[in-house]
Nucleic acid binder design. Structure first.
Lengths: 338, 338
DNA sequence: GCCTGGCACTCTGCCCGTGTGAGTGCCAGG
DNA sequence: CCTGGCACTCACACGGGCAGAGTGCCAGGC
């Protein structure tokens, strides 16, 4: 096991490297941190840390830089989450409070997060899976053409057009609308299939086909929209990546455009608490030189979606984690209020 | 005025520079193009072109590169629009035909354009200003809470919640719905305000307040949504920009994130025909080293929105213009069909 | 009058050798 | 187990020299 001091050395290396972007040597460490021992001792510790795979040297006789494994240890055991200052917190709240609708909330969140962390921000739209139905509306655009509108408690609205085989009377429509709402309003999306299963049976023979069609479109909407939308921002921060640009940045930009990849990434994050994926821990190969800090957010106790940032593995983890957590918390509040 | 041959020299310089990304000299020119004169002659021509401001040398005793003014002349007088090959055209059509809804059309278009031009693609959602109303729906979510749904001929759906001061009866609602539709269906958005102006007067005193509210929300929706949404893609192509990355690419990424800027940019493009803005012709300072090729597209004869690409001033203008024009044409077709 | 070949000049980019500084590993002594 | 000392290894910056590309100018030919 690593001694207390060696962990301290690792922490110092991570902190210095994150600050300077340059490999850090034993002498510089003793100068900038009160470790109470000489450079020679540090050298031994560093050699040990290197043997264990926590740090590495880019080339002989250069300083050391942390490896993914080193960052992992740092995040897990050596660093806390740095809380934001209260002016920062106020600024977040003020900025988010100005939002007028869901799109605006999400848009503001992504900009805020990008600015705060100076990294690329990713915000997933509130998911339908966990959320509940506020209202279902059915209306006839034409005798055999219906429109289904679904309103969720997160303020999202989805609509679908439905072509039915047979005309559907106004009374039947009102009937279906009423029954549908009485069964599903306030319920979770996941529970809806169960709740409407036997609806067609209670209708006239002639209408059953249409009722079934409507229900299947409704269920389809739930499933389809569980594939979430997301918004990204702050890509300009990628320019702060490192010195060897084109090669580093290109795969990241490509990965960011594949929303499927990002959604999968966010999906892998734990629902509660914060998830930090470092370098090669990310499955996608374009992101092996980045770290992803993600957290769930939601209007109640439960997460309805995730948000996070993508940045170089060499990032300020405590600060980033603090910002991500704070933003998630405030967004959750905003959603709960609306 | 410039002689025919000098224009030919300029064309050759632009073509070579776009291909090689390196300043082009007199000797190389005579080798790669059949100009029928010696390098020395070319040198004189180049000196003249430089005096006129069409080309410049990065430093003494290097080759010449085109200036913005040089590209402008090239685009206006020396280069045509290069039509796509028929396999390319077929590929476009197949790819776009697979789209299932408006979002999908736009999403596919942006990816297609990015891939075809190997640049950053920008696609504006079909605008509401020019388009017409397909249907307006009004429904009561609660006694004093209405929902307004607007369906456009471009397949777009917008919805708004309305809180009314007084309850609004079902018959009044049906009445309003019917009258509203009979007046505005098939009409252009721009004409709607005129058409509904006198509607409140034909209602009972009690209902007039609510009717006015509904109308104002409807009009508001039109205005608000004229501020268009847009989608961008292919940002990874920015890595092909040049050698001096960070500085060049950062302001571009920043500009791309400011959708307002891009919308303004597209808005400045001519409605019909293609608009090419080169380098400093772009008002936004982050985009002074880029060129923007934009064109309107639409379901009928008229443009309902714009699309285009953003790339380095050193781009293949004929090819890019060909791709942009072709994509716009096919998207227009798809929209007209649906 | 215009094109051409020749010539001198000016840069940039590259290679190479050198020197410096940072950093390391190892070892012997406290 | 810590420490100071020492030899060693690189990366990097600096400067000179050299080649190559490109230019401008000029005198001669068609």
């Amino acid at each position: 096991m690593l001694s207390e001091r060696r962990l301290e050395v690792l922490r110092a290396i991570v902190q210095d490297y994150v600050g300077t972007e340059e490999p850090v040597g034993s002498k510089a460490l003793t100068e900038r941190h009160q470790l109470g021992v000489s450079p020679a001792t540090i050298r031994n510790d560093m050699a040990a840390l290197e043997d264990e795979g926590f740090i590495a040297q880019p080339h002989t006789s250069a300083g050391r830089i942390p490896t993914d494994k080193g960052y992992r240890l740092f995040v897990d055991r050596l660093a806390g989450v740095k809380p934001l200052s209260s002016p920062e917190r106020r600024a977040i709240q003020n900025f988010l409070d100005g939002a007028v609708d869901l799109d605006d909330v999400v848009g503001r969140t992504v900009r805020l997060l990008a600015q705060l962390t100076r990294q690329v921000a990713v915000v997933q739209y509130p998911s339908l899976t966990r959320s509940t139905v506020r209202h279902v509306e059915l209306l006839a655009l034409a005798p055999a053409r219906l429109m289904l509108v679904l309103i969720t408690d997160t303020g999202r609205v989805e609509q679908r057009l439905i072509d039915c085989q047979a005309p559907f009377g106004e009374t039947s429509l009102a009937d279906l609308r009423a029954r549908l709402n009485s069964r599903v309003v306030g319920r979770r999306f996941a529970d809806v299939p169960q709740l409407v299963q036997d609806l067609p049976e209670s209708f006239e023979q002639d209408d059953r086909g249409t009722v079934s069609t409507v229900l299947s479109v409704l269920l389809e909407t739930l499933v389809e929209e569980t594939e979430e939308r997301l918004v990204i921002g702050g890509t300009a921060n990628l320019t702060r990546f490192g010195h060897d640009f084109p090669l580093t940045i290109r795969p990241v930009l490509e990965a960011l455009e594949e929303h499927v990849v990002l959604l999968k990434l966010l999906g892998e994050a734990k629902d509660s608490g914060m998830t930090v994926r470092i370098g090669h821990e990310n499955a996608h190969e374009g992101l092996t030189s980045t770290s992803v800090v993600a957290v769930g957010y939601g209007s109640g106790d439960e997460a309805v979606a995730k948000l996070g940032v993508v940045g170089p593995t060499r990032m300020d983890y405590p600060g980033t984690m603090g910002a991500v957590r704070a933003v998630a918390r405030y967004v959750g509040q905003i959603l709960a209020e609306s």
